[in-house]
């Protein structure tokens, strides 16, 4: 009886020893992964900084295009004023043909004015890009925080659903995905507005 119990204890000790070696090896493996993880996470602020620079650079570029567009709009407004004055003078002196030609110039200037406004509104892409980039920067910061925590704790946190992204990152990724796949266009917004009594 005693011999049998001692035999079982020996087996148990053997299994505990094997388990301890496994845990030690696993800890060593995790600690070896820790260094590259730390190195990678140390790069994240640089990536975030580059992304923030991109926002600033596109904003600077767009502002310069806007400045020049507005200068053109202002000088065109002045030219239009002069043309209208010329038309009035020509009418008074009954230069019908010249009146027609200057009026065509005014019509062309008007058409270009519309195009310049379209250029201005097209530049709103910068705002949309900047919003996406800001969300990416938040994700990167969150990932870095989690990596550092992972390395410090030497263990991988699992959520119950088997997912690997949680909290802020998951929410922002969901928002980005939603805005990509189901973003409402103006006509869809107008339909909802109409349903709520907006005429």
């Amino acid at each position: 009886m005693e011999t049998e119990a001692k035999g079982r204890l020996d087996i148990l000790y053997g299994e505990i020893g094997a388990l301890a070696r496994f845990v030690e090896n696993a800890m060593r493996a995790v600690s070896e992964v820790g260094r590259p993880l730390m190195e990678s996470s140390a790069q994240i602020p640089t990536v975030a900084s580059h992304l923030t620079d991109l926002v600033r650079m596109t904003e600077d570029g767009v502002m310069e295009v806007m400045r020049l567009t507005e200068l053109i709009q202002d000088s065109r407004a002045a030219v239009m004023g002069e043309c209208r004055a010329v038309v009035e003078s020509l009418r008074e002196s009954r230069h019908v043909t010249l009146v027609g030609r200057v009026e065509r110039v005014i019509a062309d200037l008007n058409e270009d004015e519309r195009r310049l406004t379209e250029i201005m509104t097209a530049l709103s892409f910068q705002d949309l890009v900047a919003q996406r980039v800001k969300k990416l920067v938040v994700i990167l910061e969150d990932v870095r925080e989690k990596l550092v925590k992972l390395v410090v704790e030497f263990g991988i946190q699992h959520n119950e659903n088997g997912g690997t992204t949680e909290g802020k990152t998951k929410e922002i990724l969901r928002q980005l995905e939603q805005s990509e796949n189901s973003a409402m266009k103006q006509h869809a917004a107008d339909e909802i507005l109409t349903r709520f009594g907006f005429q």
Binding site: E59, E113, T117, T121, S124
Partner: peptide
């Protein structure tokens, strides 16, 4: 965003 403020201002001016 300064760019959006400028765009909206420009349109309102037009």
């Amino acid at each position: 965003m300064a760019t959006m403020r400028r765009i909206v201002k420009n349109i309102l001016k037009q």
